[in-house]
């Protein structure tokens, strides 16, 4: 019998917390997202590995290039639905739009244009604080890699 009482206690707690949780969920608009983009040049030159990229070392080395240099780094703080623009070397422009936050993931719309042409358009669900790499555009003696980290 006392077991049943205990169970009731839990349900009480459970429902109570659930209501609190419902009340605590932030309003949908005005949410801020932080997007960081590291622009990296991957090549087979002898420049070596830029120590500022050590946190990404293992992932970058998977790309099978020898040298990785950080060309630039930009952090964008954006409201939900707003689009941030970033100039990428080689006359490219990157546009990122955090659309919403859902189940621990930032849903990010990314568009990279080269002149008038669209190079890549994608929608990503990136785990909060996770990083995804977009690469391939040739630049100088190598290729560009954009490491995009998103968090709310």
């Amino acid at each position: 019998m006392s077991r049943k009482v205990k169970l009731h206690g839990w349900i009480f707690w459970g429902v109570g917390l659930m209501l609190l949780w419902g009340a605590a969920v932030p309003p949908a608009h005005g949410e801020m997202f932080h997007i960081e983009v590291q622009v990296i040049l991957a090549s087979n030159s002898d420049e070596g590995f830029d120590p500022r990229l050590l946190a990404l070392k293992k992932d970058l080395l998977a790309l099978n290039y020898i040298s990785f240099q950080l060309l630039g780094n930009k952090g964008l703080a954006m409201e939900r639905g707003k689009t941030g623009r970033l100039e990428v070397p080689g006359g490219r422009v990157m546009e990122v739009t955090p659309e919403r936050f859902e189940k621990g993931k930032v849903i990010l719309h990314v568009k990279i244009n080269e002149g008038d042409a669209s190079l890549l358009t994608t929608r990503l669900r990136i785990r909060d604080h996770g990083t995804v790499m977009l690469g391939g555009p040739p630049y100088r003696h190598g290729f560009l890699v954009l490491a995009v980290t998103a968090n709310r």
Partner: peptide, 10 residues
């Protein structure tokens, strides 16, 4: 070498 050393430190 500094790269490995920084890596291992991390």
């Amino acid at each position: 070498n500094r790269e490995d050393a920084l890596d291992m430190t991390q």
